[in-house]
Nucleic acid binder design. Structure first.
Lengths: 239, 239
DNA sequence: ATCCTACCCCTTGCATACTAGTGGGTCAAG
DNA sequence: CTTGACCCACTAGTATGCAAGGGGTAGGAT
């Protein structure tokens, strides 16, 4: 009997593109499936099953899973199986710590950038995103809101000119998005996030490193709210 | 004819341990060889050659190389070869930026830790390392000095209780150690490093987040000195 | 002499086969 | 009914073979 596929794929995306390494594409598929909670914490994901589903051999799947274990999304237990990582308070706080460290450094560098034109462009682009976010909040479109939140932080990171900084932030952010996607507790949070983003922009515009850092720090500590309710609502996903 | 082995191995370490995945062990071997400049930037390292040398198949070697490419130590060019990454000013500055962001956050957290006993233990352990470092400097033992420098920063990072923070710092530091190992420009630097470490300890002891962060920031910006001479001395290792 | 072309070797990417080890399920003994 | 041993199915780790493509080289044409 055919098992339930681990990852649902639309027909047009069932096949992998031929002009890019299969392992890299598979990595992206699984990562997105984990972030969106399509693959649930604690769930076993077999190399063989994924290989059949993607129509490839175990080798590229295995390479993708190794990469995912590096960023803490799965855990590979030799001779036992590969499992989607469960949440743990320690790991979430760790991701938050790393992300805050990086993002504080990002806004500090940006706010103290002597080239005012650069600061202005950053501010303009972030204000555009913020205004779109207000629209998304008004429409109660949580998905769009979250994507724009991503854009906001990525845009800031790109101004460091250090691509790995942006990718690190994205990776650490993903850990928290995963938790956030457990339930849509965002309705009441729209307003707070919007005002926090506005405060960050304002501080950068003013060229104040201290205020920028403080505003970012406050913003990123906001997840503590969620962390007080979610573990109790979904204890099965926590270690 | 037998080619020159890529990595020199002592007889007793020529074989891999059987109770640990081969890929992981090989990863460590190659990483250390790259940091110590035993494998030179730009040098080609073939999967086949390494496999023969370690007495394994290409598979575990390949997995190790993929991991090394993730941390930017090698570059895998499909159908062309795998090469030890050359230095680039951008990548070095990027590593420095990430490391500063993390280490500043580390000492900030430590300095503001309300539990004074924890601060005291951190200070004590770091002072012990610092005193060993003074001995190493007096003996002009650059290798010991560098190892102790590692210990100093790792010890601080461990006090965050976030293991990934320590490993990130270690990884970013490795990029700079690689450059540093190009030549022993350290003789004149001993004194500066020692006083900078002392300043960091003093600020933590005083419980001042601002002073701790500033002291760490100054310390990590010190590499700029090296970066002004090394690229000119070894242009062949830079892109 | 120079340029172009065809070929061949070597590279990584992927597929397949095999090994060792874990955990569960079954069956028999107490 | 409980408990223990054994067997089997399935896991990840590794070995090996094949496919596809890039690059250098040799040889011929101009």
């Amino acid at each position: 009997m055919a098992k339930q596929p681990l990852i649902s794929m639309r027909p047009e995306s069932r096949g992998l593109s031929y002009d890019r390494p299969a392992a890299s594409q598979i990595f992206g598929f699984i990562r997105d499936a984990i972030i969106s909670m399509e693959l649930l914490p604690g769930q076993m994901i077999s190399e063989t099953a994924l290989a059949q589903q993607f129509g490839v051999s175990r080798t590229p799947v295995r390479e993708a899973l190794i990469q995912l274990s590096n960023i803490g999304f799965v855990e590979v237990l030799p001779q036992r199986g590969t499992y989607v990582s469960k949440f743990s308070m320690e790991k979430i706080l760790e991701a938050r710590f790393i992300r805050e460290a990086l993002e504080v450094a990002v806004v500090t560098q940006l706010a103290t950038n002597p080239d005012e034109a650069v600061r202005l462009e950053a501010v303009n682009r972030c204000e555009k995103i913020l205004s779109d976010q207000k629209t998304a909040a008004a429409d109660d479109d949580a998905l769009a809101f979250q994507n724009l939140d991503d854009s906001f932080h990525q845009t800031l990171a790109e101004f460091t000119q250090y691509p790995r900084v942006a990718s690190f932030i994205e990776a650490e952010k993903a850990h928290m998005d995963r938790v956030r996607n457990l339930s849509l507790h965002v309705s009441g949070q729209y307003k707070r996030v919007l005002s926090q983003h506005a405060a960050i922009i304002k501080a950068i515009k003013a060229g104040s490193a201290e205020k920028s850092a403080a505003a970012m720090s406050v913003h990123l500590k906001d997840v503590y709210n969620i962390l007080e309710v979610i573990p109790q609502e979904h204890p099965e996903y926590f270690v």
